[in-house]
Simulated scan of single mutants.
Amino acid sequence: MSDSQCDMDSSDEAEPSPRKRRPKTSRSCRAGLIFPVGRIDRFLRAGDYAERIGSGASVYMAAVLQYLTYDIVDIAGNIAANDHRRRIAPRHLLETIHCDSELQQVFGGAILPPQGRAKKQSAPSSRRGKGKKMAHSVRRRRNSVVAA
């Protein structure tokens, strides 16, 4: 969500009348977060992690996830810039996690696949190398027929 969606001034009057309702603001906007608090709350309740889940649990979890994401992307962006790249590749994310000891503790049990540049092996084809030669020979035949 952009800041403009969350910065609605709904306090025009000192006390809102009972007939006029204030515009609805999401819990993410109220908490000042970008990550979706409502969606995380829904997943927590559907996941059967605990019998009872407090209303602040989803806000706290969204804040932690947003902080971790910001931290990882920030460091990966610096690594990509040092690599003279403008885009963050999966390799930069892996290097970020491997270089930072705190992130290694967070992702300690996670198995992350190595990201290497695998060369594609072309399968042998029956049409191998015939495309350009055939087109070139057809042109020669047409030219020779026209000239004759």
Rank of each mutant, 00 (worst) to 15 (best):
144 S>A: 13
51 E>A: 06
126 S>W: 11
113 P>M: 04
49 Y>E: 13
14 A>Q: 03
132 K>T: 09
20 K>G: 00
91 R>Q: 14
21 R>C: 04
125 S>V: 02
107 F>Y: 00
109 G>W: 00
96 T>I: 10
67 Y>I: 02
1 M>Q: 12
106 V>M: 12
28 S>D: 08
102 E>L: 10
139 R>I: 14
46 A>G: 01
127 R>M: 15
2 S>E: 12
64 V>C: 13
15 E>F: 10
142 R>L: 13
84 H>M: 04
51 E>Y: 04
78 N>M: 09
12 D>K: 14
43 F>L: 15
3 D>I: 09
27 R>M: 05
47 G>Y: 07
90 P>M: 09
136 H>G: 00
131 G>H: 07
133 K>Y: 01
43 F>I: 15
83 D>N: 10
12 D>G: 05
89 A>P: 00
58 S>K: 02
101 S>I: 10
41 D>A: 13
141 R>L: 14
71 D>N: 04
100 D>C: 05
13 E>S: 10
95 E>N: 13
100 D>N: 15
33 L>S: 12
86 R>K: 15
31 A>E: 15
111 I>L: 13
48 D>R: 14
104 Q>R: 08
48 D>Q: 11
46 A>L: 12
44 L>K: 06
45 R>I: 06
124 P>W: 02
47 G>T: 01
7 D>V: 03
59 V>K: 07
58 S>C: 06
35 F>D: 06
39 R>I: 10
104 Q>W: 05
49 Y>W: 09
115 Q>M: 09
74 D>C: 06
54 G>N: 14
37 V>D: 14
